[in-house]
Simulated scan of single mutants.
Amino acid sequence: MGTIIDPAPGEHVAMLRKARGWTQTQLSDRASVSTSLLSKIEVGDRALTPEVAAALGRAFGTSMADVLGRASVAADDEQLLAQLRSAMRDYDMPDPQAAPENRVTAGLQTADRFRDAADVAALIILLPGLLRSATTYAHTANTPQAWSALADVYSTVYWLAARHRWMDMAELAVTRQRWAVEQQPNPVAEAFSSRDRAGTYLNFGDVERGLVVVDRAIAAVQSAPLGAADRDLAVGILNLRGMTLAGRLQDKAEGKREAQRHIDSAWRAARSFPRDIDAHGLTFGPRNTFTHVLATQVDLGRPRDALALTDDLGQALEGLPPTRVAPTRINAARAQLDLGDRDGALENLSHAFDAAPRWPASTPWAAKYCVSWPPCTAAPTPN
């Protein structure tokens, strides 16, 4: 995707601060954020978390999304985004020509591969046509499976939008996702949609309400007529979101209690799966639970507990997609930095860089992005 090089989030904060003529001390006082942390954020030594971004937004008198800054796109990609937004507007307008189930299935499989590889350039080409096909298929078939497939497409739209901080599109995507799963009873798909809805609260720094969404969804799953495996899958995927939210609570004592509750439940659910499984574009099982627990322990200020989860991080991450390997390596590096192990942190950051998804510049654009997706026939030249 021809994404323009935008200022880093911390640099963007500094720009907003200087535009108001404020010093770092003045901003930190208004936002109730330490000057030391603000200084590190502005120079890129610390990540700008949604919670801090929300606090800075209140101080600036603007939205958290404006503080984070929206990722810009090149002019050629604006047309692709316009096509995606148009397909989202037409959520209740199926095409006159039928969309075969196998086309939608193939498109979802391709979208999952692109998502695992964080191949946003491919997704932005794929999604408008896939969304229209899935919309037509859902309206025509009118089965729980068909509506669930449409919800899965909206989940991928949410992932793409949240990644680029297009918060309006992200919120619309989860609203459409919830609408789709409510057309026919499907408790598992509803749980996955709640997981994404809770993610919008996480993105806006409102972790308390995000936890409410998760807990309500878990209660609904536990009372639904489901088999043990489906129940564990739905509860487990919600627990992963719950522990992430809990790790971001400002009250760390409460965060530890809430996180441990979700961690314990996630491990119990993971026992039903000898290995990780893919469902609705997401992954659940023992190894993905491990990566979430490690990240949560780091967020809670427990670096030793995080690093004690495994003696061989490489083996623990073997076979996981780059979108999970790279962040876990970074989280391990955060824990090592907290313990003063700069050499170990540098090694993990090097592994994270190596794991980060990329593709050869020589790969033909259309050949790469249009595999298994017949409607994708007019891919643009990459920027």
Rank of each mutant, 00 (worst) to 15 (best):
D29R: 12
L27V: 07
P100W: 00
M64Y: 04
P50V: 01
R20C: 07
S63R: 08
P96C: 03
A74I: 08
A118G: 06
G61I: 03
L27A: 05
D90W: 06
D66F: 09
E101D: 14
R113N: 11
D77E: 15
D29N: 14
L108S: 08
P94D: 10
T62C: 10
P100C: 05
R89Y: 09
A75C: 07
A74N: 14
I125Y: 11
S72D: 15
D66H: 10
R103I: 09
Q109D: 15
D29P: 00
I41H: 02
A121H: 08
A53K: 01
L56V: 06
G21L: 06
Q79P: 01
G69E: 08
L126A: 02
G57K: 00
A71F: 02
G61Q: 02
D66G: 06
D95P: 03
R70F: 02
S86G: 15
A98R: 09
V73F: 14
L38Q: 05
P96D: 09
S39G: 11
G21D: 09
M64E: 11
D90E: 15
D45T: 08
V120R: 10
S34T: 13
F114V: 02
Q24M: 12
S34L: 00
A111M: 07
S39D: 08
L38G: 05
E78H: 11
V73E: 13
A65C: 07
R89M: 11
R20I: 00
E78D: 15
R115M: 06
L126G: 03
L123V: 00
L108I: 04
L108Q: 09
A98C: 00
E51W: 11
F114T: 12
A47G: 10
S36H: 12
Q83M: 13
V73Q: 11
L68C: 13
D45S: 13
F114N: 13
D76R: 15
D45N: 13
A111I: 02
I125F: 09
K40Q: 14
P100G: 06
S86N: 15
M93G: 03
V33K: 01
A71S: 15
S36G: 09
V33T: 06
R115Y: 10
A31T: 02
A65N: 08
R58A: 10
A55N: 06
L68Y: 08
M93W: 00
Y91D: 13
M93N: 10
S34N: 08
S63L: 04
V52P: 03
E51K: 12
E42V: 08
L81E: 13
A82I: 07
V67A: 07
W22P: 05
R46V: 05
M64H: 03
S28K: 06
P50G: 04
L68N: 15
A117D: 15
R85V: 10
A122M: 02
R85S: 14
L84Y: 12
T25N: 05
R46Q: 12
A74W: 05
G57P: 00
V33F: 06
L27N: 07
S63C: 04
G57W: 00
A65L: 08
V104C: 01
F114G: 13
S34Q: 07
A118W: 11
R46A: 12
D45W: 00
L37N: 10
S34G: 03
N102E: 14
I41Q: 03
P100Y: 01
